[in-house]
């Protein structure tokens, strides 16, 4: 049986892991390669590196970060943040990324999804959707959550799938960094609308939040950052808990 995946996300700026709350107030959380090594020992299923500044200087630092992490772990590695062109994606893949995550660029030029899916296969293309509750629906934001994209999250996820995305990385901006639990309604709405895996993100604070998003949220994978970085919750402890709850995981 296909297991539910636990994914550790590292927001990286200038080669260091940082973490914010609701996309603001960044603080340092350590060295990416050292964190990746610890996660691997604890049984993480995948690692995501998000370059959260994506200036020219940090782009060069990013390639070194990807190489350092890919050298430590033999697990699927996704790179996102500021990937705006086929060349950016190629640089990430060349450095050791197995998948690239597109966000702002996918909305600006949706044909990039198709171009990358043709070049690397759909399995290598994740479309990241940052969503915020609005009325009865969920609005999409881009540019690290600063700009309203004037799109509905469910409808955009469907279009991303049709254009060749292999997975959706769905972040609740309302819950990001709050540790108040994943937005299960958002996750279920998108998961029911597409036939590709949905990775839930934003709000992980306790073990029960993961059980919740896999059952009520119908997520295929759950991503968290801060609760793993500061070792509040070990990945191994989380997986043992999920198995006790009857959720299939790789131990």
């Amino acid at each position: 049986m296909l297991t539910k995946r636990i994914i550790a996300c590292m927001d990286v700026r200038d080669g260091q892991v940082v973490k914010g709350v609701q996309f603001q107030q960044l603080r340092h959380a350590g060295d990416p390669a050292a964190l990746a090594r610890r996660y691997n020992t604890e049984g993480i299923d995948e690692v995501v590196i998000l370059d959260i500044t994506a200036t020219l200087e940090s782009r060069r630092a990013l390639a070194r970060t990807i190489e350092a992490v890919a050298h430590e772990i033999f697990l699927p590695l996704t790179v996102g943040g500021g990937i705006g062109s086929e060349e950016d994606a190629a640089a990430a893949v060349e450095a050791g990324a197995d998948k690239v995550s597109l966000n702002t660029a996918a909305l600006r030029s949706p044909e990039l999804i198709t171009t990358l899916a043709r070049r690397y296969g759909s399995q290598a293309v994740i479309v990241a959707v940052d969503a915020k509750r609005r009325g009865n629906g969920f609005a999409v934001y881009v540019r690290s959550g600063t700009t309203d994209a004037a799109r509905d999250a469910v409808e955009w996820a469907r279009e991303a799938e049709a254009r060749g995305a292999g997975e959706i990385l769905l972040t609740s901006m309302d819950r990001d960094g709050t540790r108040a639990g994943f937005d299960c309604e958002l996750t279920a709405a998108v998961s029911d609308a597409v036939n590709i895996p949905v990775i839930a993100s934003g709000g992980a604070g306790g073990l029960e939040h993961f059980a919740d998003v896999f059952t009520r949220g119908r997520a295929d994978a759950a991503l968290a950052a801060s609760i793993f970085h500061y070792a509040d919750t070990s990945v191994a402890e989380l997986k043992r808990y999920l198995r006790r709850e009857g959720i299939p995981v790789r131990l």
Partner: peptide, 10 residues
């Protein structure tokens, strides 16, 4: 809820 593509650890 068994999706295709088959992505993940099995």
């Amino acid at each position: 809820g068994v999706k295709v593509p088959h992505v993940g650890w099995n």
